[in-house]
């Protein structure tokens, strides 16, 4: 018996919250794939730590989205019973782990944004989002510190680590623009003070990223063509495989409680 996807009534606030929840879940899931396979035990601990922070953020955001939506959905229905086209995460975050450099560059690009984003969202007029922001900001501050230290070590380490780190930057750069995009549904929330305009964060993000990349003796690409589509469910091919694994139990045993 196949399990149907849930229907979501994507009002602006529900959609907005789901997008951030999906970001956290998908990146958290990617980090959890490392567990037991990291380059050193200390890094196994750190990757799991960041993964757990993100899973925690996802759960709070899904729960809030469910409450706002008020149609009987919950964190697990959002996570396990939507298909690729219903997922709203950034393309950057669904990109495969690749090697350790790829994982760290992905983490760094996102965390450098998330830290600024959550700090700004602490002033949201929506009390729940502001509270989630306050907790998430503390977590993402650590994620920035941890990942930026690795970018510097890898860039300024050996020839091989430098080549891998530069390669990861070149591969992932085109996915960074999507973090700053806003559509009509978000515009109203920004005007109402519920959301913040991410475009305002871009100069500070670029400064943080440029400073770290320079210290790492690496360079940012000239190419400024940016991919987008994640926010409206047009994903890379990678997400479907991630979801088929993530959702396998819920899809195989419909309606069971675990």
């Amino acid at each position: 018996m196949a399990v149907a996807n849930i229907q979501v009534s994507e009002t602006p606030l529900v959609l907005y919250t789901l997008r951030r929840a999906d970001d956290a879940l998908i990146l958290g899931h990617r980090l959890s794939e490392w567990c037991g396979h990291a380059p050193m035990l200390e890094e196994d601990m750190a990757l799991a730590n960041m993964g757990l922070d993100l899973l925690g953020q996802a759960r709070e955001l899904y729960t809030y989205a469910a409450k706002v939506e008020g149609r009987g959905n919950d964190e697990d229905k959002f996570a396990y019973l939507r298909d690729v086209r219903q997922y709203r995460n950034l393309l950057l975050l669904e990109q495969p782990n690749g090697d350790f450099a790829r994982t760290m560059v992905r983490q760094f690009f996102y965390a450098a944004f998330a830290d600024l984003y959550w700090r700004a969202m602490m002033r949201s007029t929506d009390a729940t989002l502001a509270a989630i922001a306050a907790k998430s900001e503390k977590e993402s501050a650590y994620h920035v510190r941890h990942s930026s230290e690795w970018i510097v070590r890898l860039g300024d380490g050996t020839e091989e680590s430098r080549r891998r780190a530069q390669g990861a930057i070149d591969e992932l750069w085109a996915f960074t623009g999507e973090m700053f995009e806003v559509d009509d549904s978000e515009r109203g929330l920004i005007d109402g003070g519920i959301a913040i305009d991410p475009a305002n964060l871009r100069p500070q993000w670029l400064k943080t990223v440029s400073d770290v990349v320079r210290e790492a003796t690496l360079v940012l690409p000239d190419n400024n063509w940016m991919q987008q589509g994640g926010r409206s469910g047009r994903h890379s091919e990678h997400l479907g495989h991630l979801l088929s694994e993530l959702q396998s139990m819920q899809r195989t045993f419909p309606g069971a409680t675990w």
Binding site: H29, S32, M45, A48, R59, E75, W258
Partner: peptide
């Protein structure tokens, strides 16, 4: 971990395996 059947179980399992890594350390 990647197939845990609910988000609560997923977080608990990831935390548990992380604890084991800590014990190893």
């Amino acid at each position: 971990i990647t197939r845990a059947p609910s988000l609560r179980r997923k977080a608990a399992l990831l935390a548990k395996v992380q604890d084991e890594c800590g014990h190893g350390l």
